[in-house]
Every structure is written in C-alpha cells, then in structure tokens.
Design a protein around this nucleic acid. Structure first.
Lengths: 295, 295
DNA sequence: TCTCATCCTATTGTCCGACAAATAAACCGC
DNA sequence: GCGGTTTATTTGTCGGACAATAGGATGAGA
C-alpha cells in the first residue's frame, strides 16, 4: 500500500536547502516542520482548527509516524500547535506563537509577507537596536569593536556582490548586539538574520536609497560606538533603521504592484498609495492580513 | 533489565506541575525536555559537549527512545541542542539558544538565576515595555483599554493574595503589549509571564517598596494610556520597571546572603554590596555566571 | 615514520507495528 | 429530557529493526 506519491509531497526530488538556522542537508522531521510551519503561517489550517490526523498526514506526506511526530514537536515547541488525545492537533492562536523564533519568522515571511508584518518587525528593530547601539558604545570591548569595523569594511568591499554584502550587513548588526553582552539581545540577532535573509530572498536585493547612503550611515554608527558616544549611537542607529524600513516598504509595494498588474487587476486598492515612509501607521490595521503572494 | 531506578530519575512519584506554557498534566516528552532543559541551562553538559547517547539516556530516565527523541526535538527547536549521526547530541553554544523562548527562560531561572541574567532580562523589559506603553497610548482600542483598567483594579482588589496579584500584574503588562497590535510585542508578553512566574516562585513574593507604591505607578501608567499621552506613558512605564528591577535585585541579594550565611561562608565576595539599584552596570560582567542556588 | 585509503563500528535517522490512555461523542436506561 | 455508561477515535508511549552517516581504527604503501 501507499505506492508512490499522492499530492503536495516532496519526497526526494527537492533538495532545496532554503531555511535559516537549519543546515543544507536537513533531516526529514525538519523538512516536515518547515513544510507544515509555512503552511500554518500562511493560514492553511486557520488557528483553532485541527490538522489532519497523524495517520492521514503520514499517508499524505509519505513519512513514518515517528518522523511526523518529531516534526510536530518542533512546531509545538514554538507554540504553533498543540496536540490532545482524541481531539487531534490544533493550530494555536497566533498570539501564542513565539514570533521571536527565527524559524517562525522565516516561515511567516516565506508564506505571507504582508505589509503589516514587516512593519511590525521593523518596529521592534527600531525599538531594540538603537538601545543596543547605545549599550554597545558603553560596554563593547576593543576586539568586539574591531569586529564591527571589519564587518563595515566588508560591506564596503562587497558593495558589488549582493550576497556577500548581506552577510557583512548581518554581521555588522549582530556584532553590535553581541557587544551589549546581554544574552537576550544576542538572541535577537538570530531574528534579524532570519528576517533579513528571507526579505533578501524576497528580491529587494538593491534599495531605493543609493548604496553609498546606506554605507555612510553604517559608518557613522560604527564611529560613534568606537568613540563611546552612546546617545549619538542611539540616534544614528534609529536613523539607519528608518531608512531601511522605507526601502523594504518600497520593495513590497512595487512587488505587489507588479503582481496586481500581471494579474490584470488594477482596482482602487492600490491606486492611492503614497511614496512610502509615511502612511504605515494609519493603514497598518487594514494592511495587516493582506497576503501579497501566492497560495 | 532496567529494574527500578538509578539516579536523578523522577519516574512516577513527581506529579509536580511546575512549568510555564505547559499544562499541569504534561506529557512525557515535555517532562523530559524540561528535565534536560533545566540541566543544560544549569550547565551540566557544558556547551560544546555531547549528551549521553540516546540508548543510555533511555535507560537512565527509563523512557522509550521515541519519547526521548520527541523531547530532544523540543530542545532542538529552541536551539539548545543539535544531533548528528555518529557524533551524538551536542549542546549548542549559548549564543545560539533562543532566549526569547518562554521555556528556555523558565529553565534558566529555575536552574541558575544569576544576577547578570535577571539584569539582562529587566534591561530588555526596560527597552521594550516603555515603547509598548507609548504605542498602546497611541493605538489601543477602547475595549483593550478597558481590559487594562480591569487588570489594574484586580491588582488593587487582590493586594492581599500574592498569587492573584501576580496574575493581575501579568495581565496588566500583557494587555498593554497586546494593545500595540504588534505581533512581536505580543509574543514578548509570554516571555514576561514566564520570567515573572519563575521569579515569583523564587520567593520574592513581596517587595522592598510598599505595595501602594507599586500600585500607584501602575495606575498612572494606565491613566496616561487612557488619555493617549504617549510620551508620559513611556516615561512612567520606564519608572515602573526601574523600581521593579530594584525589588528583584534586593530579593536575589538577600537570597544569596541567606544562602551564604547558612553555609557559614562570609568572605569578601558579598560584604560590600550596596543597597542595590546602582552598581548593576559596573559589576555585571563578574556577576554574570555566578550561580546563586543549589546544584 | 608518515600518509592515505579502507574498513569497522558506534550513533542517530527513519520505519514499522502494537498497545495504553484519554476523551469526545454516541448511546441507553430512566 | 437527562445523567450515567459505553464506544470509538486519536494521540501517547513502547519496543524492535534496519539504514545512513561519519569518526576512528586499521593496514598498506611510500
């Protein structure tokens, strides 16, 4: 029984290798978790509803119950699902999900990168990272400051290659978080990494602002940290993130415009969007749950 | 084989029921994860080292391999461990752990509530919650504000019963986070809940400040949110947390003093601690990894 | 003696089947 | 119509088997 393949099953043909914090050759239960996680993040089984029974999912995904259940545990540990005897495995309400988990963030961005969602993410970054910069200016040890410098210099050197530039950019921000010596802020770095990687893959490789503009801001942040000017580091990091979020919103906007145009629709829902950077606050309630992509 | 019990094994005799975000009647794999998680958080297998093999752990804990592996997945999903064929299951470096996971936080606090750790936690609270209060003042809808009021009034009513007071206190802070509408900030509430619950169980039920003092601060935060005064809400929440961290530090200090005294040691390591609230910044590096309790 | 290829073995990864336990839902007696 | 009982379904745990991988031992050759 269970001959070959039924539907929606990636048994062997996809080596893929696209997930943060999981190695290229991921295990089966990791792939299962990612698969289900992305689907749940997209709202396939809407919160409150139950997933198919383990037996059925085993058949559909063509995996053993052990592997499936281990995948379930990965999701349960992040708050996405909860299983109970006789009732099944239910998708927990979104408020219970651990949004600070890098995987959960990646699944969200892979499945439904809504405006409201990335707005929320950058809002948190704008809350945390300026403080991190200030604390780094106060506490960073010399070698850590040197690593921030290296990251910045790599950004300059890799200006051409977007891939390497992203890596250097990530290292820049993560090293600043490290410099604070705060275990929680260091953890926050993984979230930024996951978020930026996914956003990057989402195709906003470039930016609306010129590369020089962004580089100059990074350089000034680094300099103020080196010179132990906490308040200025705070302000500059705040500025840096403000311009970064504008870039992301522009990218998401053009992305949606392109999608709409190609679909032939051009209704009133997209005609009066301003040039970004301002109306996020007002329209955030409505933009929240509006999927911008497939599925 | 595997007759009765070997060591450090809680097979059936502990019903316990002490873990946040997990129901009272927890499953076996959840208990396994908590058990190993607390031990790892305490540094039993130090990061980089490998755990005993699955076969051995199965024997020691007297559980099946399935249950053990599901527990492993819980831990792996939070970044604590990583398994590889032939090499075993290694404890990942602390920087890779997801400190924003409520369980990870609880395990840390249960196993090794160091000064540096709670300082870090409250530092993050002081970064995030004032902003949350400000955003809540801007965005909260009327019914949400009403729930904040209810939480405050419950705090007043439950002044006597510490348990209920804690619940109301948690609801107060979590509702403010909810009011921001930011998915990430809402997630942060689970962290606060886990942290405060563990701290509470750690015995600082009361506080150095009078209850009235704390209540007055909460009241003023609520009022400014109701009156949409974002800046004042920011400042007041900041103040509230500043006094809260003083309470916690006092509690931890007296806790350690009591432990030292009872042990008979009274060396120079504890004699010149000031009256809290000031020297956290300077001595944080040294206080970081100093266990204050058993094990 | 050093280097490299090969084999061996230990360990996790996955599969399978069985039974236990819980509990929602159907059922039945009153 | 209602409360207690039974049933059926679903997850929870167990035990065993084999596959896959990779570290380490082994041995041959330079």
């Amino acid at each position: 029984m269970r001959s070959a393949n039924d539907e929606a099953r990636p048994p062997e043909n996809f080596v893929d290798a696209s997930s943060p914090s999981t190695p290229v050759r991921s295990n089966l239960h990791q792939r299962i978790a990612r698969d289900l996680g992305e689907r749940i993040a997209a709202g396939d089984p809407v919160p409150g509803k139950v997933l198919p029974t383990e037996a059925e999912l085993c058949a559909r995904l063509a995996v053993s119950r052990s592997a499936l259940r281990e995948g379930f545990r990965l999701l349960a540990g992040k708050g996405l699902i909860a299983s109970k005897r006789k009732v099944g495995t239910v998708v927990r309400p979104r408020t219970e999900w651990n949004m600070f988990d890098p995987d959960v963030l990646a699944w969200h961005l892979a499945a439904a990168p809504t405006d409201g969602f990335v707005t929320d993410l950058f809002e948190v970054r704008r809350i945390i990272e300026p403080w991190a910069a200030a604390l780094a200016a106060q506490r960073a040890e010399a070698p850590t400051i040197a690593r921030i410098a290296v990251a910045y210099e790599d950004m300059v050197r890799f200006q051409g290659r977007a891939e390497d530039l992203l890596e250097a950019d990530l290292r820049f921000h993560e090293t600043i978080l490290e410099a604070t010596g705060n275990a929680f802020l260091i953890s926050f770095g993984a979230l930024i990494e996951s978020g930026l990687r996914a956003s990057f893959k989402l195709s906003w490789s470039g930016s609306a602002h010129t590369p020089e503009y962004s580089l100059r801001r990074h350089r000034r942040v680094w300099e103020t940290i080196r010179e132990r000017k906490a308040q200025e580091a705070f302000a500059l990091m705040s500025e840096l993130l403000r311009s970064a979020i504008e870039d992301v919103h522009d990218a998401l906007l053009s992305r949606r415009l392109a999608a709409d145009e190609e679909r032939g629709v051009f209704t009133d829902s997209v005609k009066d969007k301003g040039p970004s950077g301002q109306r996020q606050r007002e329209s955030r309630e409505r933009a929240r749950q509006q999927p911008a992509s497939k599925r």
